[in-house]
Every structure is written in C-alpha cells, then in structure tokens.
Design a binder for these strands. Structure first.
Lengths: 216, 216
DNA sequence: ACCTGAACACCGTTCAAGT
DNA sequence: ACCTGAACACCGTTCAAGT
C-alpha cells in the first residue's frame, strides 16, 4: 500500500521506457545531492537539472512543479519508513510490552538516523511543500500498525488504547524530529534513544495501572 | 536576556525615530498576515511591503534580506515563549514534582496554542531560514530554567539530571510540534496535553526510582 | 533620518523544435 | 516517447533620487 499523491502534487506522468525510469531516479538523486550540498535556498530546478545532467524541460516532463518533485521525494522516503515500522509491529504481535516498545522506538529511530544526512535534508525540504496529506497518510499507517500490536500484548489492557497509542507515537515522532532539528550529537542522541524507551515504557506501565488497578 | 542575532541575520539598523519603530512593527505584522493568509509560497518581500503600506526599499532598510525578516520574527516569538517558561520554572522552585511537570508542560503548551494560527505560521516559516542558532539559544534558556527547577524538588534526586531533563523537554517540544504539524483538532490536542503530563510524570517517577531504589 | 520605486540578476515554468 | 533550451513572468535586492 503506497502513499498516495493528491492530484495537484502528483508526478506529471509515469515513465514508460527504461531510459525514462533511469531519468527519474537520476533526478531524485540529484535533488538529494543539491539539497544536502547546497541547502534548501539554493535548491533550484535549474541546478537539479544541471546536476542530473538533463535539461530543465526534462525535469518538468515528470514533475509539474518544484513542489511535486520535493513531494515525491518525501513520499518515497516516508513509504520506506512506514513499511519498516509495519514489519516490526507485525513481528511483535503478542510480545511483552517492554519488547514492543523497544522494537518500535528502535525501528523508527534507526530508520531516521542510519542516513541522518538524508533525513535532515528531507526535514528541511518538507516545509517547502504542503506535506500535510503525506504526513497524515504516514501517521495513519504507523498508528494502525502500532495499535494492532499493542492490542495483542499479554501483560496489558489499556482503558483507552487510541489515546495511549497516539501519545506513545507522538512522543516518538516528536523526539526524533527534535533531535534532528536541534542537530544533536550522536552521543546525546543515543542517550535520548535509551531514555525515550524508558519514558514510553513507564508511561505505558502507568496507563496499564490506571486501567487495571488490581494488577501487581 | 534577549535572544541574539548572528551577524548575517541581524536586522540592518535599529530604528532611531518613533515613526521608524512603527514602521518595523507594521512590517512584522504584515509579514504574519501574509504568512497566515497566503502561505509561505506567496510570502514575497513585495507583498509584505505592499500589505504594510511601505515600499520594498523601506523593508530592506531594516532587514538585509528576507531571511533576516523571518529570523527576527521568530526571535521575537521565541523570546516571549522562553520568558514565560522561565517565569513558571522560577515560581515552582521547591514544588512537588507533579506540580512542576504540570506547570511546565502547561506553560509551554499554552504559549504555543493560545495563538495557534501564529504558531503554525511560524513553524512553517522557520525552515525557510537557518534557525539553528535561534532554536539552540531558546533551548538553552528553557533547559537551564527547567534543570534549576527540577533540582529543587523535595521528592526526587535524579542520578543524571542533565539527561533526564533533556528527555523531559525533548518530549514536550516534540509533542507540541507534532500536534501542530499534523494539524490535530483541539479535542485530540487536549487529550495529548493531559497524556503528555502523565507520560512525563511517570518517566520522572521511574527515573527517580532508578536513582533511589530505597524509596517508597 | 527615513522613504520611494525603477532597474537588474536570477528562478520557476512553458513550448516549439528536435531525436 | 523522450529530450532540449530560449523565452516569459515574477521575485529578491539595490541604489540614485526624494522629503
């Protein structure tokens, strides 16, 4: 299940021949390169085309405008991250709460940090464009995967799974985003990764206690 | 203690006459208006000047470039938020942990949500510009205020206050940011506000237990 | 001391012409 | 089916001229 494009941000046409597919990939790669090397300010369609070794016209054959290019780039990336989270969630159905929390936090954290230059570049680009629908779709997928997982844990039964799950994920997303935005060194990052797991776990424990006051 | 401007983003000159001060205020107001009414894409210096009722030249007398204008706008805003957090922290020195957490989370949350249209507009604008130094300075102020407060609570003694405080604040910042970015309805927002307090509290409780295993 | 607005370089986007 | 690049409208920024 791929993330959809709203019509005004959809790519102009799908490449039909092999060389065109290559062209699109080259354009994506060039966009990332320019974004990382020169920053959002200097990310111009001319520069992207130049770096990709094609003419501007070619770029505009596949993307109706600059926004659509950035949008598609983000969509690609979020799709990969969402897929990874879904996979981890499914493989932890029925696991103890502590393992679920650790697995989900770590999956998301790793997906974002293993290529942190790309992540940071995309975070920067993602405000240039109307990415609400993109983030919403991403959120829904992860939300569903996580809620389905949490519902299967043997050692908890939450009073309001929807709200608890939302808080759980919001804390994860927000923390990771903040770590990137504040450009924190990896040492602080790994402290926070560990503490984030502790925070989510103590929260879920407390939420479980609220729901079942009779528990140990 | 005001948030500083790095030289390349500093306003060009301070207004010296009353009418110039008014002009700068008018330009700030116009920038917010354009940002909220038309969005980041259509935020052009010409449009801002037009809405402010001055010529572009006037705008460029006070701000060396568009970035500096957005930067100054953000600086103003973050300064107000930081001041509020500092005040709340100082007034809660020596309070029980639960009251500290609730006060800090609520102060930050309220500062961001009471004029949520402005907050959202500024979140959007803040990636157009190199705001790292701005956010860093803001972060340092809030970090210091919060750590100083946490150190005075009667009912806890944290093993590593620095790290625990960082996680505490990161969760707050990140959650609020995510709520804005995902455009969540206020009903979900207030659920998350309440859950965020619960999450921070259960985390700090657990961190305290780690430090003092002998406690009740 | 402050304001104006025409002028210039550059960017996003198009489209007639090419393979 | 895909690619090219000159052309156009618009934006950021400047500066000579005004009060």
């Amino acid at each position: 299940m791929d993330l959809d494009h709203p019509t005004h941000l959809a790519p102009r046409k799908q490449p039909r021949q092999a060389r065109a597919t290559t062209t699109v990939d080259i354009i994506f790669e060039a966009t990332l390169q320019v974004l990382m090397a020169e920053g959002l300010q200097r990310l111009t369609t001319t520069r992207v085309a130049q770096r990709a070794g094609v003419s501007v016209g070619t770029l505009y054959q596949y993307f109706p405008h600059k926004q659509a290019l950035l949008y598609a780039l983000n969509a690609r990336y979020l799709d990969i991250v969402a897929e990874r989270v879904e996979t981890v969630c499914e493989s932890h159905h029925g696991a103890p709460l502590a393992r679920m929390v650790e697995a989900l936090v770590t999956a998301y954290w790793t997906a974002k940090t293993e290529r942190s230059d790309v992540t940071r570049a995309l975070y920067r680009a993602s405000v240039e464009l109307d990415n609400e629908s993109l983030i919403e779709a991403f959120g829904r997928r992860v939300d569903a995967a996580s809620a389905a997982m949490l519902a299967t844990t043997p050692d908890a039964d939450f009073a309001d799974l929807r709200v608890v799950n939302a808080m759980f994920l919001t804390a994860i997303f927000g923390t990771v985003r903040t770590v990137f935005e504040r450009n924190m060194p990896t040492s602080v990052g790994s402290d926070l990764h560990r503490e984030l797991i502790a925070m989510c776990l103590s929260y879920l424990d407390a939420a479980r206690a609220r729901a079942n006051p009779s528990d140990a």
